[in-house]
Design a protein around this nucleic acid. Sequence first.
DNA 1: CCCACTATGTGCGATTATCGCACTTTTCGC
DNA 2: GCGAAAAGTGCGATAATCGCACATAGTGGG
Lengths: 253, 253
Amino acid sequence: MSDRDFAATLAKGLDVLACFEQSAQNLTLPEITRRSGLDRAVVRRLCLTLTRCGYLEEGETGLRLAPRVLTLAGGYLGGLEVGRVVQPILRHAAEELDMEVALATRDRLQAVYVDRAAPASARVTLGFGIGSTLPLLHTAVGRMLLARSGPEVLDAALAARPAPRYSEATETAPERLRAAIEAAREQGYCIARDEFELGAAGVAVPVGALGQTPFVLATTASVNAFDDPARLDRVLDILRQSALSIGRVRGGR
Amino acid sequence: MSDRDFAATLAKGLDVLACFEQSAQNLTLPEITRRSGLDRAVVRRLCLTLTRCGYLEEGETGLRLAPRVLTLAGGYLGGLEVGRVVQPILRHAAEELDMEVALATRDRLQAVYVDRAAPASARVTLGFGIGSTLPLLHTAVGRMLLARSGPEVLDAALAARPAPRYSEATETAPERLRAAIEAAREQGYCIARDEFELGAAGVAVPVGALGQTPFVLATTASVNAFDDPARLDRVLDILRQSALSIGRVRGGR
DNA sequence: CCCACTATGTGCGATTATCGCACTTTTCGC
DNA sequence: GCGAAAAGTGCGATAATCGCACATAGTGGG
């Protein structure tokens, strides 16, 4: 490769690992070969290495991620003091709102949940937990993140979108998406209804100071939960208060 | 290196990543060099590569893990259906017991939390969440895992232990540790008091069939919470019931 | 029952990416 | 402003990687 300061083998190995991010099922060697576009023999050797290092393990039908990736994530979460600090704040907010509350940040062109809390009353979980990803363009979380990221990220998101159409209400016009994100930046919060999943709505507020890695605090509910302005105000109030608490502790990061 | 099917560069890059697992703080290049034992120039190039691939990011003082590792963990958790299936079961158990309940597995020579739930009444969290690690030898979780793992793992754990002494009650005699683990295997549960942290006790039961990757379900409470045999029975009962539910769903894995 | 197709294992020579030393530049603490 | 630690970089030798090619095994359909 061209760059002398770039370890191609490492990058390829990471690409192989990344194949497991989306379809979490066991992947066979040929499947990985297809996804990664690498040579079959190379994939085999990289997978052997990843297995030996503990990042992959052999399942019945193919390879899958090993618990090792969790300890890595644990390192990240530990650095943010998610366990001691963030979790109680989220729990408190979730109870007060009686809704799911999540802290999210951005990984490339998607939003990713950093932590999450559900109220005790919730009998059903939505299936989104730590490490779950959401699209940037069509969720409140994502748009608030975009509003806090550099313009190049928004451009990339708009350019890369492979015609995602999650529901009939999904907004696809670039200029209207830009407008929605601009509005979120100015208002200091973002709300989205029906776009990612019919019947669901989300509200997101920013966490921490501008210029840092953007984090947002968000809550999800059924689509009409935020229709009453007074109710929405209350939600925003509690979210912002929690965001403040988290931002204070996270401090310099 | 010797083996033709081993990508040394990838392994080194993963070693660099692994440096961030423990001390979650920002690491400087010289610090990583020291920990990994690699050449300074190599570390620099590997870190550059890891940063470009999104696994590390630059902080104020040095490098740190990027949210990317969370999406990897999300892949692992998604494959286990932790979000939809495990989480509700844990929540239910936590409420019924009014104690923290966690699902854990083994990563090399440590236990790692896969998921966790706390009862609504809990005002304080212990700071252990997804990806947190515990020692194998001195916790109920760890011993139950060892009881379900191959003997070579136990031997390795006993051999590798760098004289860990978490409290005055920490058991260090190898033969007594073996006995405790043997007892856990036969009893079908494990209990440990005061050994990892004074004032704390844990109970663990196995999840799923033998011969698979071992998982355990565990709960933690203050040291005397399990003194009453009737209470302990109730705890075991609920844990085992939950373990059954999880094991049923997890099926072949 | 056999054949075609897909998955898998692996040897080996050419290539080229990696290593790690050495030198330079920058930053930081005192 | 000085010394020390950190960071950036060029380059040649080395050895690791690549990826083709050949060989083998398993699977499902005709």
